[in-house]
Write a protein that binds this DNA or RNA. Structure first.
Lengths: 181, 181
DNA sequence: CCACACATGTAATAGGTTACATGATTAT
DNA sequence: ATAATCATGTAACCTATTACATGTGTGG
């Protein structure tokens, strides 16, 4: 039975793929993944164990990852998850299909984690695509609407957004020049 | 009957309060709110109509907002929502209680929208609190763990995070010096 | 007359969090 | 001993998205 949700499975479903992206860099336990996310919490939301472990189980059931009982020398026994070949394929497909995804800083960071574990070309594409989105954002037309948006409306947040976007543009250019040299 | 979810009602529940924050700046329709969110999509997630309208209905049922049938000269009739006194109180309470909330750029932006509609002191507190969080992030100890994190692990994303954090710090200092002068 | 922006809404469902439950090992 | 960190998991519940449904007004 194919439900509509299964059609969506290959699309966004954020957490699945960022977890897969982390596992693509090296085998880890659920606990490790959680800690890594904590390091990234500045940019990406940290999933709770309540979604982390079930996701890992689902990925396992689909053969996108494999498990082995970790050595746990000293510390309690742990399950080491590793990405499979099928997992790598799925990850790459998702990354390429989700290329047109939105403009949020969070979405970019999420995909950046995944991109780091893929080919240099995928990374370069991601950065270049992002660059044009950021430029688009910075050159967006100022709205002078009659109804709402009375001039100073949301000024502060927009100012913040513009400032961050400019910084990001600088970062992107720096990274891209490194990649192209 | 008091359920545990009701206790949480005054806490995070993101969208409720950012909507309330937007309405605190001026009365708007659901459609207006959606457009405003689109402008902010760089920093904050845009809720879908499927959550926007029900949220508006809930806020209305709790007397945190009021409605009036908009003029709609030319365009189709619209419902103008406005924040009530109770709504303003609830907004301020939420803002102050959620002060210790996490460190994500998205969480900050969300609260920034709300802060813009509150007193200058609330805004100043928010910026100062954020400043110390950002400084904490930038001065966080580099981990040299044996098990995972093999040196260059997640390098790129961390680099990105650091770059953005530095930019944010500069912005915060700029804003704070404006507020204090 | 048709596409597009304006405008509001609901039902099914996916996705996530909270709170709970359990246990090993190390440092104080 | 006992607190803290390491480690895994589940059930109930909340929240949000997706997809659908409907209708007005404007411009080409």
């Amino acid at each position: 039975m194919v439900t509509s949700s299964m059609i969506l499975w290959g699309r966004l479903v954020s957490t699945r793929y960022i977890i897969l992206g982390l596992l693509a860099q090296q085998p880890m336990s659920g606990y490790d993944i959680k800690s890594l996310f904590k390091d990234l919490s500045w940019l990406v939301d940290t999933p709770s164990y309540g979604s982390l472990y079930p996701t890992l189980h689902a990925l396992l059931a689909e053969d996108l990852v494999s498990v082995s009982i970790g050595p746990g020398q000293g510390k309690p026994t742990r399950k080491l998850y590793a990405i499979t070949v099928a997992g790598q394929t799925a990850l790459q497909s998702w990354f390429r299909e989700s290329a047109t995804a939105g403009l949020s800083i969070r979405g970019f960071a999420r995909r950046l984690v995944v991109a780091s574990s893929l080919s240099g070309d995928d990374l370069k594409d991601h950065l270049m695509q992002r660059r044009s989105q950021v430029v688009g954002y910075l050159t967006r037309p100022k709205d002078t609407d009659g109804r709402r948006k009375g001039g100073s409306d949301q000024q502060l947040v927009h100012d913040y957004g513009t400032f961050i976007a400019k910084a990001e543009l600088a970062w992107l250019d720096e990274q891209l020049s490194k990649l192209l040299s």
